[in-house]
């Protein structure tokens, strides 16, 4: 693997409750070096956002967590890290000739189907970010998702993929994007991220205060707020959960 930081140390677990929880436990017990990466074949209790479950069939997908220390980021700009991780996913998609988009605030989509989700957990002390555990769940070989509008990378790219190759690709992409972030190429990443936002080119249906409306995503603020312009011209700023995208 050709990286400077990410996955210089790599641990594979046959199964675990959740890669983020397992990695956080390791962080609490010993001094892990930055970039440490853990992945598993199966999460018994995969977690999405705050208690939501994340389902994945055994051995089909890439479920991983990476340990980083972005203490250079002010906590109110931690969303920049989400942007970097999303861009790394998109870089990997590009290698497979996939045109992908981000559904604000932190999902990776192919068309209207979800390819991957990101769950970042940061640890703060004295108002500074000490460390982060970045959980990434990428659908790779899974073909059926029940009621979920999701798709595997393999099906989207229409070619056979090896999960370990996907691991190498995402680690290399993340390594590159994280280095950019560290170097301060903030505007560049911000710009790229905004251009790939779901709803940035075409007006999309959204649910705001229970009402269905349409609008265009103008962009995001460094703190993560979404700027949306409704079809009547009105521009509004949204925080997470104040707006829902209708993906039908």
């Amino acid at each position: 693997m050709n990286t400077e930081l990410v996955a210089k140390e790599l641990l594979h677990l046959k199964e675990t409750d959740s890669t983020n929880s397992a990695l956080k436990e390791m962080v609490a017990q010993k001094n892990l070096s930055e970039g440490f990466c853990l992945y598993t074949d199966y999460q018994k209790a995969g977690r999405g956002q705050y208690g939501k479950e994340w389902q994945s069939d055994p051995g089909q997908n890439l479920l991983m967590s990476v340990y980083l220390k972005p203490s250079f980021l002010p906590p109110d700009q931690a969303y920049r890290l989400t942007m970097s991780v999303c861009l790394a996913l998109a870089d990997m998609g590009q290698e497979l000739d996939l045109k992908t988009q981000f559904k604000w605030p932190n999902d990776w989509y192919y068309g209207k189907h979800k390819l991957a989700g990101v769950l970042i957990e940061a640890s703060l002390q004295k108002g500074r970010i000490q460390s982060c555990v970045i959980g990434i769940g990428i659908n790779v070989k899974q073909r059926t998702f029940g009621d979920l509008k999701a798709i595997g990378l393999e099906e989207a790219a229409q070619r056979n993929l090896n999960r370990d190759d996907v691991l190498v690709n995402i680690c290399e992409a993340l390594d590159h994007r994280y280095r950019q972030l560290k170097m301060g190429l903030l505007d560049l990443q911000h710009q790229e991220f905004q251009e790939m936002l779901w709803g940035s080119k075409l007006s999309i249906p959204v649910l705001v205060e229970g009402e269905r409306q349409r609008g265009i995503c103008l962009g995001v603020e460094p703190g993560g707020d979404l700027l949306l312009q409704f079809n009547n011209g009105e521009i509004r700023k949204f925080r997470h959960r104040e707006i829902e995208f209708i993906m039908d």
């Binding site: 989400t82 932190n106 940061a122 002390q125 970010i129 997470h240």
Partner: peptide, 12 residues
Amino acid sequence: EAMKLFNEIESE
């Protein structure tokens, strides 16, 4: 939690 980013706040 800010923008689906979960920040554990530690006592100082």
